[in-house]
Design a protein around this nucleic acid. Structure first.
Lengths: 183, 183
DNA sequence: TGCTCCATGTAACACGTTACATGATTGC
DNA sequence: GCAATCATGTAACGTGTTACATGGAGCA
């Protein structure tokens, strides 16, 4: 599985405590691979046992239980091994499509309201992504001046942007279709 | 959760044995909500215990254990109740994006080959969707002649089509970006 | 006879979610 | 002094995956 590898990636980007990691995760890799803090603590425990990462008590720990994790060469090697493997295409798991199909066979649920609500949610997320894009990637200089790492991060973000745009376009078309239907 | 509701929907569309249901599922709702046959048998057992569905031995059973499930009014009511609830937007869970980010921090995995492989996979799926679209929805008559149910099914299919198209466009752009990068 | 497909299931385990617990630190 | 937030965890449960088991039917 790949939660452990997602966590490894995030830890290589920056050594952190479990708590910090969980919060950073939510705002980066988490957009494409969600995990709760419990899952993350569980993975950290396993990876430390496996010798992929190690922890130490950071200078600012005080009397807290805070620990900082960093990736060992074994963890880095494992990540490289995994990253080179082909990955299966994402499978969609869209509850709303199931509801649509239920509606189709049962007849008439109020879809308009729900569609409008969803368009608003997608627009919020899109706006959020566009802010990040503006702040991190489109500030003046042409894209070609960015590092390889930044350009890849930008393209990951762009995947999210395209997904949200597509969802909005689809939902608008769906509203149109419903408007032209009799029932 | 919604696996049970996905199964209910499929059973209302057509009463079937667990086996048939599992195979039909793969080719309809399964595109948006995958399930193995074990999950489906488990849900059928639960829903029968809950009084949402009932089973009988079909005429063509012979000496096999074959049973046919049909939805009871309680199951139909439960499905309607569930379908009317708002649904959270799908969360993306894309292993390849995690690998990209791993590549960004580790440097250089061979991404080109993998991207081309993925483009081919998305094109296969897109072609398959387009065949279904042609066969079931675009055969001569204008869309406005289709039933409400058919038009909803068409829009569900279209969501899949748009996703595959978006994935292909994104992967092509990613290849372009890699081509212009130094390392 | 042996092969493949139909049809249903058990068992074990991995992953994900939800609720709750504990104690330190920070800010008002 | 109190509330919010930092930081880490346990427990219980629900969902999803993988491997294997069983037996009938159809066919060469």
């Amino acid at each position: 599985m790949s939660l452990s590898h997602a966590v490894l990636t995030s830890l290589i980007e920056k050594s952190s405590s479990g708590y910090d990691l969980a919060r950073r995760f939510d705002k980066s890799i988490g957009y494409f691979w969600h995990a709760t803090h419990q899952q993350i603590y569980r993975e950290l425990g396993r990876m430390e046992a496996a010798g992929w990462i190690a922890s130490s008590v950071p200078a600012d720990a005080g009397k807290t239980r805070k620990r900082e994790y960093h990736v060992l060469p074994e963890g880095r090697a494992e990540l490289a091994r995994w990253a080179a493997e082909p990955a299966a295409p994402m499978d969609l798991r869209d509850e709303f499509m199931v509801k649509l199909r239920a509606d189709a066979v049962l007849g008439e649920v109020d879809l308009q309201t729900e569609l409008q609500r969803r368009i608003a949610l997608h627009q919020d997320k899109l706006g959020h992504y566009r802010e990040i894009e503006q702040r991190d990637f489109l500030n003046g200089k042409p894209l070609t001046h960015l590092s390889r790492e930044a350009r890849i991060h930008h393209m990951i973000l762009k995947k999210g942007i395209m997904y949200e745009e597509g969802s909005i376009a689809w939902a608008r078309e769906m509203l149109q279709v419903l408007a032209t239907l009799p029932g």
